[in-house]
Design a protein around this nucleic acid. Structure first.
Lengths: 223, 223
DNA sequence: ATAAATTTTTAGATTAGACTAAAAAAAGTT
DNA sequence: AACTTTTTTTAGTCTAATCTAAAAATTTAT
């Protein structure tokens, strides 16, 4: 039942994010970058987190989360994503507007609140960007990994998520009419710039640049 | 657009609460009591709030809010009460469970969030305890002021709010079947202990102690 | 109106979380 | 292998919000 500061929670979340997208251990500088602080501040915090047994830390060697640290990181990510669903589904915010608010809401410290929110939202499996919502016990479900850019001509797929979460990218998708859950069919790929001609229901055709296609996650169509 | 710390917001809210229930100015000791800190800490904070023009403060004389301080206090109270409505109406919490969570939620800093929440909840005028919800512009609507203990035999009234917000009191009301909005009719008042015999729909009779009756707010029946 | 009690303020410390500047370790280059 | 560059850590400082102990102002009581 010990309680952690907002700052500590944010470090855990960010360490999780950095580890899960590649490296085995996270460097001090990488953390300084994502926390928007200096390396010296990061070192301080890592020592504190190590004292609390939330990370494994060896000088000059980088960090990784302990089991308890990972469990905690995942409950925070769970809260973040559930609040995003609330903001979009219930309050009508756009998926490009909710990140900052969820950054604050994720720190509200009541497990019962989170579980009631979860049922109120209908136990969603994914957040508005298609990211999977961790279980209450702290397990991260598998996420789709195939990119739209990997599709071949004549293949169809279901649009499931985004890799780039920036407001600019999300707004671009809005303007293009690309919505999560929609079925896309690749009719042609330009050999020159790898841009795709795709059709989406109801029979609409659009061009998707490679830069966009490699930031979109797809899966098998529901058919 | 300047931003204030949680702590500053809490001081403002508590100063408002103390002023509105009596005294013209609030003493350092009274604030130390409600903030659960020491007088010396309060003095420090009052200086900081005075620097930010949120309170009028003169040494040894107590404090009161500036117009800007009061406006801010009321937006925080507005947020608190709206979140309480959300927790009770949408998530199904009991009215005795929501205070602590709302204490955290009230500090989420997005005006658009609050206004969208307000519409989502159907623009409620009162929180689950019958306290009026301040307007977005920072105006506190009038609250009912008549106490159930002031009713005379044979008078009827509508139960509108509570003065005591403790979980113990609220749970007592739950066990008694006293619900906000219900019509109460006083059939008899004991001259000995001022306890009341009241009837509530559907034709149920119960005894209400003076201690309970003076913590209940009533108004004219809707009829 | 003077002394005693209470309240409030000052002075000086502490903690979390940040900072800068400098030292130490690791990695990269000839 | 030795030198250079980069990364990380240490050492010392800063701010917000707290604390204790002591001093100052106000209030109460004789």
């Amino acid at each position: 039942m010990s309680t952690h500061s907002f700052t500590e929670e944010n470090y855990l979340k960010l360490i999780y994010a950095l580890v899960s997208r590649g490296a085995d251990e996270v460097s001090t500088n990488a953390l300084a970058e994502v926390t928007a602080t200096r390396a010296a501040s990061v070192t301080d915090m890592l020592k504190r987190l190590a004292d609390k047994q939330l990370v494994h830390y060896r000088k000059y060697q980088g960090v990784r989360l302990t089991d308890e640290g990972e469990r905690l990181a995942l409950t925070i990510i769970r809260r973040h994503r559930l609040w995003e669903v609330f903001l979009v589904d219930k309050l009508g915010f756009g998926w490009d507007q909710v990140h900052e608010m969820a950054e604050e809401l994720e720190h509200i410290r009541s497990d019962e609140l989170v579980e009631r929110l979860d049922s109120f939202l209908g136990n969603p499996q994914f957040d508005p960007h298609g990211d999977p919502i961790p279980t209450p016990a702290g397990h991260m479900p598998a996420a789709p990994s195939q990119k739209m850019a990997d599709l071949l001509p004549n293949e169809s797929a279901c649009l499931l998520g985004v890799l780039d979460h920036s407001a600019a990218f999300l707004q671009h998708l809005d303007r293009s009419g690309l919505v999560l859950g929609c079925t896309v069919n690749v009719s042609e790929i330009s050999p020159f710039d790898r841009s795709m001609r795709v059709t989406i229901p109801p029979g609409q055709t659009l061009f998707v640049s490679y830069d966009v296609a490699r930031n979109l996650l797809v899966g098998p169509t529901k058919a």
